[in-house]
Write a protein that binds this DNA or RNA. Structure first.
Lengths: 217, 217
DNA sequence: GGATAGCGGATAGTGCTGCTATCCATTCAG
DNA sequence: CTGAATGGATAGCAGCACTATCCGCTATCC
């Protein structure tokens, strides 16, 4: 398959494919002559993965390059690949030392030990959580920590479902890629579901028109 | 309070505050003389909200402007504000009609009716979900729909926790803003928790070093 | 065998986003 | 009275994900 057909089959323009190759997101085609290369199914699959991580997962090209490099590195142990993926999903780490930030970090440490989670307070996910909680506290929603355990219950439920899926579904050689897909796209899936459930719960609590309109008109 | 103090107290630079005002994210200060304005606590609070939605929620400035306009419009009923917020959180709607996309939409319709959710197939959240499921299917993970119900259980749990929190915590006049904060920042919170739970579940299943290393060394 | 479409490779440019820099005339604080 | 700060406006910048253009070559079709 040449680049034109690869482009047609994936809906990604030829210059964009070239760009991805340049950026190290996928290997170049195999040269059959000085200016002719052939691409295989692996390229097609990789391209779809890139588009999924970009469009659905909202990742940046540079971060995708890191994750894919980790996936391609067959020496790297699974948990390191996952660590690389998980670490790149979060926001930038703008370290602050507000009182809110400190309190949030303490709450996160508490949560981790209360849950008996094998995570570290210093992990990017924990840092993101602290930042989010600190932001809520600054907005007068410090009490949100009280529902953290409900959130954590749900998070554990999702994590169990993910692991079970990966465990039974994916062949071993694809496991790394499968887990990355599950981690990144699963987030998009859950996020949509949460918004849908939110609308539903709100409708059931307040009626379709919402509380503001109950005495209106 | 003048703009300099507002800047110092929030850590947002003066030109950036001016920029937010220009973009309609917050009202200008009250002019006390032709080139002197005073800002109040409402401005400070608004600025913190903007930074939270930007930095933690990952929203775009233009979308934040829309949401804040909805919040400020006291005529608008709660559910419309929430709709505006929820709709702006998703990705762009790149309509396609792959077989995968069609199948994914069918799966979503199924899910909604199975759950009895008061949502519509055409809502942005449902569209996002379809896109995510279609992307998974294209990557050979069509079987992911089998865990959708586990995800939905968790999503309902989170939505219930959110609603309960808002219901007991927030004064009525702040309810709209509170729900937006909960929706947007709650997503960041859950995302962090999911990644942490993921690491924990993985560690417990495979041991700290992951499966790849069990026979290494 | 000659036109033409496509190719690999490289460089420069584009549109969008979230600011940042600079300038100006005015005004407030010490 | 002087120097810092202010409101208002315009222009510029850095990062990102492409996109356009050009080059010399080659596979392909008639």
């Amino acid at each position: 398959m040449r680049i034109g057909e690869l482009s047609r089959r994936t809906g990604v323009s030829v210059p964009t494919i070239k760009y991805y190759v340049r950026e190290g997101l996928m290997p170049p085609g195999e040269l059959t002559s000085p200016n002719q290369a052939s691409y295989g199914e692996a390229h097609e699959r990789r391209l779809r993965l890139i588009r999924a991580l970009l469009d659905v997962g909202g990742m940046k090209v540079a971060d995708i390059a890191d994750v894919l490099a980790a996936i391609d590195d067959r020496e790297r142990p699974l948990h390191k690949v996952l660590g690389a993926a998980a670490d790149l999903l979060g926001g930038a780490n703008t370290e602050q030392d507000d009182p809110e930030e400190v309190a949030a970090r303490a709450a996160v440490t508490d949560l981790i030990s209360r849950r008996g989670w094998q995570t570290y307070e210093s992990s990017p996910a924990a840092a993101d959580l602290s930042r989010a909680l600190a932001a809520m506290a600054r907005l007068g929603h410090g009490a949100f920590v009280e529902v953290l355990d409900d959130y954590a219950d749900a998070a554990e439920e999702v994590a169990r479902a993910d692991l079970a899926y990966v465990d039974r579904q994916v062949a071993v050689e694809d496991m790394v890629e499968g887990v990355v897909i599950g981690t990144v796209l699963g987030e998009a899936v859950f996020s949509s579901l949460r918004r849908m459930a939110h609308v539903d719960a709100s409708a059931k609590l307040y009626g379709t028109d919402g509380p503001r309109e109950r005495k209106a008109k």
